[in-house]
Amino acid sequence: MSLYYVILQQLINGLILGSFYSLVALGYSMVYGIIKLLNFAHGDLYMVGAFVGFGTLGLLGGILGVGWLGIAAALLISMLAVGLLGMLVHRAAYQPLLNRRAPRMSLMITAVGVSFTLFNTVMVMTNGEYETVNTSLGYSGISLGPVNVTYTQIVMVVATALLMLALHWFIKRTMYGKAMRAIALDPDACRLMGINVTKTIGLTFFVGSSLAAAAGVMAGVYYGSIQFFMGFIIGLKAFTAAVIGGIGSIPGAMLGGLILGLLETAGTQLPFIGSAWKDVFTFGILILLLVFKPTGILGKSEIERM
């Protein structure tokens, strides 16, 4: 009975954690797919998203309340604001390098620079302190046998699934989505078709950044506290998730995030060795996985990188 309880409870925890990883991994993978850049600032956009959501909740909380309505508004505003911030970063920092056909390494170092700029700005603005995200979401929920699943958990998993479905539709069905996939394959051929490549890359940054912001807002609400450095670790983990899934692949990023989240929570329950070993367990498995499938689960050596 208690083992069943633990497994089910951890499955839910893993699913939530994995949802956050997946949402962040998507942006990593999309940007890599389209311009082959490892955007190390991506985790910081998640962090900024959490703070924008927190700020919005503070401002609008008086009117909309700090329940679902207020949180939904904070989520949308944060997605929009951080999406625009992602576009600004692309325009100001990355596109000039792309125009000059700069070496890939310069782009990567620029990304590290953007990351430091973002999290240090937030650090100064918040004095490096933790902020508590107050909401009126309780712990009520439904019972699955001995396990309680809160409505908050259900809503978050459903919201993540909806965002992913929307993304899938956008990439597969709209002209801009098709253009993104085409640019990943051959940007010059796209120019010859009248596609504004720079603008489409900007749009990719918008979409990827706003997904990270959504994860940031949800994580803030779920865990109840946020801090300027929260993007660093999740950035690395989401990058890991994207690589496990096969970087450049969108379904791969979704899958990689979920696998990473589930492995991590499973790692906290290992018998005999204790939860302190969870990262050793998780990343040990990942190293093994990549030894046997270096391109990631859904990656091919020459795949459509979107």
Binding site: M175, K178, R181, A182, D188, A189, M193
Partner: peptide
């Protein structure tokens, strides 16, 4: 320079 991983139809649509 066709888009090899996109379908024939998608290639045309992008045209």
């Amino acid at each position: 320079r066709i888009f090899k991983d996109l379908t024939v139809r998608e290639n045309l649509e992008l045209g």
